[in-house]
Each structure stands twice: as structure tokens, then as C-alpha cells.
């Protein structure tokens, strides 16, 4: 990468936003659960009823996977922000240490 740049607070907040957004993926499958159950129970003997429940199970797994993935991404982003901030502080501290030495030599 040619450039290294980060607005730490913005990125950290973005990671938090991702983690907050992640669980909402599950809502998509949650809203199908009751209708699928109802369709199966009110249509006994129909292959389609069981297939609908099965489909919801898979869909639920998919949305759960998206939730975990997005949550993981959010955590990674936040971690990256923390790490870069820590690194930045460390470098800043080193520069300050150097800065202190330089004037001291000049004075001497």
C-alpha cells in the first residue's frame, strides 16, 4: 500500500457499527420461522410444508453465518484501530524521546 492512514475513532466506531449491524441479519430468517411452521402445521401431509421448515433451517444457518462473519469483521476492524493507535502512540513516544535528546545536545 502506498499510503497508511487511519482515522482511529472513525474506524473503531465503524467496527462497532458492524458488530451492531451483524445480529440484524438474523432477523431476516426469524421472520420466516413462524410462517414456515404455520404452513407446515396447517398443511399436514404436504411435502411442501416440511420443505418450507427445512428451507428455513438452512436460511437460518446462512443468516447466522453472515452474522458471525460481519461480527468478526467488526471485531477485526476495531482491533486494527486499537493496534494502529497503540503503534502510533509508541512511535510518538519515541519521537518525543528523540526530541528531548536533540535539544539537550544543542544546549550542551
Amino acid at each position: 500500500m502506498d499510503e497508511v492512514y487511519m482515522e482511529v475513532e472513525q474506524v473503531r466506531g465503524g467496527g462497532g457499527d458492524l458488530q451492531a449491524l451483524a445480529p440484524k441479519a438474523k432477523l431476516a430468517s426469524d421472520r420466516v420461522q413462524a410462517p414456515a411452521q404455520t404452513a407446515a402445521s396447517s398443511n399436514g401431509g404436504f411435502v411442501t410444508g416440511e420443505a418450507g421448515v427445512q428451507w428455513h433451517g438452512r436460511f437460518d444457518a446462512v443468516t447466522a453465518g453472515v452474522e458471525r462473519r460481519v461480527d468478526w469483521q467488526g471485531a477485526q476492524v476495531a482491533t486494527s484501530a486499537d493496534e494502529l493507535e497503540a503503534c502510533d502512540k509508541e512511535v510518538r513516544g519515541r519521537f518525543r524521546a528523540l526530541e528531548r535528546r536533540i535539544p539537550a545536545r544543542r544546549e550542551s
Binding site: 499510503e3 472513525q10 474506524v11 465503524g14 458492524l18 431476516a28
Partner: peptide, 30 residues
């Protein structure tokens, strides 16, 4: 109908996800 709505929800989720990602990318490059 609920499945279709769920698909829409997931699509909206993806859109919102894209917005969050864009916000992150605006302040981050490495």
C-alpha cells in the same frame, strides 16, 4: 410472502453493511 420480505431484509442489511464499510474505508487505508 414472508420469505420474499426476508430477502428484502437481507438485501437491506447488505446495503447498510455496505454503508458501514464505506464509512470505515473513508478513514482507513493500509
Amino acid at each position: 410472502a414472508e420469505m420474499s420480505a426476508a430477502g428484502t431484509d437481507l438485501s437491506d442489511h447488505g446495503t447498510e453493511y455496505g454503508t458501514k464499510v464505506t464509512a470505515i474505508n473513508d478513514g482507513w487505508q493500509d
